[in-house]
Design a protein around this nucleic acid. Sequence first.
DNA 1: TTTATTTATCGTAATATTGCAATATAATAA
DNA 2: TTATTATATTGCAATATTACGATAAATAAA
Lengths: 110, 110
Amino acid sequence: MGLTKTEHFTDKQNAIATMAKALGHPARIAIFEYLLKVDTCICGDIVNELPLAQPTISQHLKELKSAGLIKGNIEGTSICYCIDEKGLEKLQGYFTTISLKLNKKNNKCC
Amino acid sequence: MGLTKTEHFTDKQNAIATMAKALGHPARIAIFEYLLKVDTCICGDIVNELPLAQPTISQHLKELKSAGLIKGNIEGTSICYCIDEKGLEKLQGYFTTISLKLNKKNNKCC
DNA sequence: TTTATTTATCGTAATATTGCAATATAATAA
DNA sequence: TTATTATATTGCAATATTACGATAAATAAA
């Protein structure tokens, strides 16, 4: 108990859930938006930008990365993180498809 | 510690994170997709459809509802759940906007 | 080599989530 | 009223997440 039953759901359902979960925290939304805002995809300025300790930011970055939403490149001592377009596209595409399907049916019962 | 610092983020960031988190579980993705699939927005067939116990489904429905992603209407003894278009539109709009912004900048550093 | 800088990992405490059995609630049917 | 049916809530155990201090690892600079 207390363990998500991923095996009962499809790979796609699990994949979308994983990405949605990764963005299911305001700090990770803020990190994502910061990466979108800066032109040069600067790295650990995120620590200065957000009101969280460095290990916490590092952990959030790890989760976003493992969900396929950001990428990281080593640049000297620092690491350059930026948005992974493919991951974002998957998520965006999913919600757009769902929205279109919903508009096609008459969702009037509630 | 262990408590999300929502007060440090904007209302919008928290709102998007809340909705993303609600869909950050494969069972809730499956519920959402089921509600999209069925024409009449039938209710507790979800319990028969998914491999989870009734209290568990009820709990997931509650989370989707409190995140503003589904609505529920009492119909006799049963309850009719269906997708809340406004919530879905907010989430879909957010990701579409982010995607468009990303396409405008040259995201080539990583 | 030594020192500084940057990021990751470890360890741990606090809190949250997941799942379900048992039970409660609420509306309908008999 | 007394079932019956459908959904919600409670309580609890297992697991996961969040946050951070301390520390490690890795590269760059002196």
